[in-house]
Design a protein around this nucleic acid. Structure first.
Length: 901
RNA sequence: GGACUCAUAGCUCAGUUGGUUAGAGCGUCGCCCUCACAUGGCGAAGGCCGUAGGUUCAAUUCCUACUGAGUCCACCA
């Protein structure tokens, strides 16, 4: 068996990616002999390129799916991509812009064609990148949210919701992105807190005899209206606003009906400045008397609250903006100006007329488009909405009653809060890339919801009694209106089929917290509404990948590490392993961290080389599974017990999504126990067939154990000792044999390890050169220890680099020696002139002092009446035992110190 | 404004019903190229478990307040 001294990731990765693909190894089919285990990938956007977040997300899924596959489940990991309406359209529009064109220049059909060809060319990039990190998806099943079949599902859902009266079209204030020129849902408008200003504007009374005291406004500044209009009275009402430009659309001023300051003015008329429109003072409970001046300008077409007030008071709607947020013809002198330019101009003009009473700093949060970061405009328009309340109910229940678990648990609260307070979902988008809304209108605006124009026409004919001209709704659906069907639409819904029947519901969903509202909650709603079952039972919210300073990785910050570059330099195994190893919720990573995984892969590689070069070729692929473990020597029983202990802990960690812990466990076992101790211990015993068998047995099973985390290198090595046929990805998970977890072997081996460590410690302490051998006298204090030391003295001698080893219970003191106490047995190393007896004495005394402190603590506890009477019996017994041991140890140490004199 | 999370070694994290001497990796410091691996080996140093109270025989662990870091939600203009 020839293996090079360094693991070459690139070679193995290429090889195994091909084997897996050619063998269709990850293909899952309905199989009545197996239980299904399904995970659907969070479909990355077709515009996406692989970043660390994807690498993390997919590694986590892959660990679980590989684990389940090895555990005998028919494990399906469904891959696919999302058309990502706005994002993708923006990308292609940017491309067009380089040619000096706009999408309107091409027209809808041409532009959509262009998008499709873009998708064809680049859309699968990310899928191939996910494949490179070893994701064991059922690749031939790859779905796209705009596949024909998938589109059918989207239409079906639209129709069903419409027929159930859960969909409606209405004119509302929605979040509008003036740059993308489309409506957004509430979730797509990201609120960011900004330092803005609160502007106080004076609207004068039509009735010049009226006035209003200015005292509550505070001291007006120079050039303020008090100079213009008199000392302490305003000829009008002062309103406070953060968005003065919307005043062009004001239709009223509202005050709280209980506010005594304004009570007598309700119903009076004001003159809207700059526009000179007459508007009324109205009373509405919405207005908070404490805020600003207690008087609010009412702009029903540009603010959701004002819209509601407008409805209550039957006010007119004056939309003063174009879709691109320039002021429209209703804005008079300001028409054609951008909203922010208009703001400046309006403020300047108001100030010139003495109507800008005051400005103050004001923090408020402003919505931004989640795709292009433009400030969104609350904008009046006609859109399609999904009624959320009825859909939210079962989704809410599912988490509250534990049908669906969200981990870490705290996210359940976030989910619940959102669903309890969710508002209707605006699903129409004024873009061209997406699912066209399956609605047709006749010339009178009658609505025909149908899967096709033919069907719509038939419906229209049925209603009108003759053929009518129809036009389809121009808009497309929110991307999330297709993604929310992902867990079942990817399995062929609405068609009844074996896949859907077998693989739905899925098991676990891995995603980031930002997606809980967008996607997770809505998938649960859809699952219940259309399948009658939850789409999954576990939701795992993982953290964000950050740089070493804790900043989010982003292209604009320039701190992003490219997973593909990491694969190139360190290997895919290293990427996967290092990302997760020793990480918390959020993952802080710098390039150097990937050395952890690279080094570990290399360690596995070299340990395997050692085993292979020392084992009989026929054994390598032969029969070493049926070991009579109980007849093996101590180190062998120990390592096999440690293996099963680690197996149990690791399985449990994977099932409870403690992946970092799982990796620490396997690494600790393989490196810390198998390599550092077992392989070192057996270096002189390779001619023993049982040793060979044990090493091969542990190695082979360790490869299985480590495979979900580090699939390529384990697959590569496994292939050289494979007896089962197929590859490691398809092999079975080791079966736990609890009876082989041998506590006695653990304790005995620990003593041997402690003795060796004590010897090594002394050697370093007294600068004994590594290639120099020394003599050691071991003094056991009981029969069992004596036997243990004698049986393992060869190992102790070799790993301790000893010239001679003497086990003798009768020895009490050794001249000019360094010493150690291991539990209750003593270690003497006569070093002659090498050892400084004064220093050695000091060393021992320091040791004694530490133990004495423990004794003091224990004694005071045990002499405490309350402790003895209230603490449980077993604790008291343990403490007493501990005290006795300490006393014994300290006595030995004192004896040694005395002899040092 | 509301809700939530975190605080343990220089750094990143474990510490699963409260119970001996709080662990690991990285980093640091010694010594070693020992015939699997220097992507390695051996050894060591390093912690008032954020602060102040409380509950308890016993608190890193449970409770309260505070401080610091972070996240999410929100229609008071």
């Amino acid at each position: 068996m020839e293996l090079s001294s360094k693991y070459n990731p690139k070679e193995s990765e290429e090889k195994w990616l091909k084997v897996w693909k050619d063998g269709n190894v990850f293909h899952a089919v309905p199989n009545s002999n197996k239980k299904p285990f399904t995970v659907v990938i969070p479909p990355p956007n077709v515009t996406g390129i692989l970043h660390m977040g994807h690498a993390l997300n997919n590694t986590l899924q892959d660990i679980l799916i590989r684990y389940k596959r090895m555990n005998g489940f028919e494990a399906l990991w469904m891959p696919g991509t999302d058309h990502a309406g706005i994002a993708t359209q923006n990308v292609v529009e940017k491309q067009l812009a380089k040619e000096g064109k706009k999408r309107q220049d091409l027209g809808r059909e041409e532009f959509t064609k262009r998008l499709w060809s873009w998708k064809k060319e680049y859309g699968d990039t990310i899928i191939h990148q996910l494949e490179k990190i070893g994701s064991s998806c059922d690749w031939p099943r790859t779905r796209f949210t705009m596949d024909d079949e998938y589109s059918e599902a989207v239409k079906e859902v639209f129709i069903r919701l419409f027929e159930k009266d859960l969909l409606y079209r209405g004119e509302r204030i929605i979040n509008w992105c003036p740059r993308c020129q489309t409506a957004l849902s509430d979730e797509e408008a990201e609120h960011q807190e900004k330092n803005g200003k609160l502007y106080y504007l004076l609207y004068t009374f039509k009735d010049k005899t009226l006035s209003f005291p200015n005292a509550f406004i505070g001291n007006p500044e120079a050039g303020s209206p008090t100079e213009t209009f008199g000392d302490d009275k305003f000829p009008g009402i002062v309103v406070a606003t953060t968005r003065p430009e919307t005043m062009l659309g004001d239709v009223a001023v509202a005050v709280n009906p209980q506010d005594p300051r304004y009570a007598h003015l309700i119903g009076q008329t004001l003159i809207l400045p700059l526009v000179n429109r007459e508007i009324k003072i109205i009373a509405d409970d919405f207005v908070a008397a404490e805020f600003g001046t207690g008087a609010v300008k009412v702009t029903p077409a540009h603010d959701p609250n004002d819209f509601a007030m407008g409805q209550r008071h039957n006010l007119s709607l004056i939309n003063v903006m174009h879709p691109d947020a320039r002021i429209n013809e209703k804005g008079g002198a300001y028409s054609g100006m951008d909203r922010f330019d208009a703001r400046k101009k309006i403020l300047a003009d108001l100030e010139a007329q003495g109507l800008l009473v005051k400005m103050e700093d004001h923090k408020n949060s402003v919505g931004h488009c989640y795709r292009c970061d433009t400030v969104v405009e609350p904008y009046l328009s006609k859109q399609w909405f999904v009624k959320m309340r009825p859909l939210a109910k079962p989704a809410l229940e599912a988490v509250k009653n534990g049908t669906i678990k969200i981990r870490p648990e705290r996210w359940e609260k976030v989910y619940i809060n959102w669903l309890e307070d969710t508002r209707d979902w605006c699903i129409s988008r004024q873009i061209w890339w997406g699912h066209r809304i399956p609605v047709w209108y006749d010339k009178d605006g009658h609505v025909f919801v149908a899967k096709s124009e033919t069907e719509a026409k038939a419906k229209a004919k049925a209603q009108h009694g003759h053929d009518v001209d129809l036009r389809q709704d121009e808009d497309v659906l929110d991307t999330w209106f297709s993604s929310w069907l992902w867990p079942f639409a990817t399995l062929g819904w609405p068609k009844e089929n074996p896949d859907l029947k077998f693989f739905y519901p899925t098991a676990a969903l891995f995603t980031a917290s930002e997606i809980i509202f967008f996607w997770v909650a809505r998938m649960v709603m859809a699952g219940y509404e259309f399948m009658g079952k939850p789409p999954f039972t576990d939701v795992i919210i993982h953290g964000t990948v950050r740089d070493a300073k804790g900043r989010k990785m982003s292209k604009s910050l320039g701190n992003a590490l490219d997973p593909l570059e990491i694969i190139e330099e360190y290997g895919a195994d290293a990427l996967r392993f290092s990302l997760i190893y020793n990480s918390g919720q959020d993952i802080y990573i710098s390039k150097e961290k990937f050395e952890i995984g690279r080094n570990f892969a290399n360690k596995i590689w070299n340990a395997s080389r050692l085993v292979f070069t020392n084992c009989n070729d026929t054994l390598e692929k032969g029969d070493y599974e049926n070991l009579d473990v109980k007849a093996l020597d101590l180190p062998s029983r120990w390592i096999i017990g440690r293996f099963y202990e680690t197996l149990a802990k690791t399985s449990n960690a994977i099932e409870t999504y403690h992946n970092s812990e799982a990796e620490v466990l396997v690494q600790e076992f393989f490196w810390g126990s198998f390599c550092d101790w077992y392989l070192e211990l057996i270096k002189a015993k390779w001619n023993d067939v049982n040793v060979q068998k044990t090493a091969l047995f542990v190695l082979k099973n360790s490869l299985k154990l480590m495979h979900p985390f580090i699939p390529f290198v384990t697959e590569e090595i496994y292939s050289r000792m494979n007896t089962e046929g197929g590859c490691l990805s398809q092999a079975s998970w080791p079966v736990l044999q609890k009876e082989l977890i041998d506590q006695r072997a653990f304790d005995d081996m620990q003593t041997v390890i402690d003795v060796i460590t004590a010897i090594r410690n002394i050697r370093t302490q007294w600068n004994v050169k590594p290639n120099e051998t020394v003599d050691v006298i071991l003094v056991p204090d009981n029969e069992a220890n004596a036997k243990l030391l004698l049986e393992n003295q060869g190992d102790i001698q070799r790993l301790g680099k000893l010239k001679t080893i003497t086990v003798d219970a009768k020895v009490t003191a050794v001249k000019e020696s360094a010493n150690a106490v291991v539990g209750t047995l003593k270690v003497f190393i006569p070093l002659g002139g090498l050892v400084d007896l004064i220093a050695e004495k000091k060393r021992m005394q320091a040791d004694i002092a530490v133990k004495q402190r423990s004794i003091d603590g224990l004694q005071s506890r045990l002499s405490n009446e309350a402790f003895v009477s209230k603490a449980p019996e077993d604790i008291i017994v343990k403490e007493k035992e501990r005290l006795a041991t300490l006393h014994k140890e300290i006595a030995e140490l004192n004896k040694i110190v005395a002899d040092l004199n």
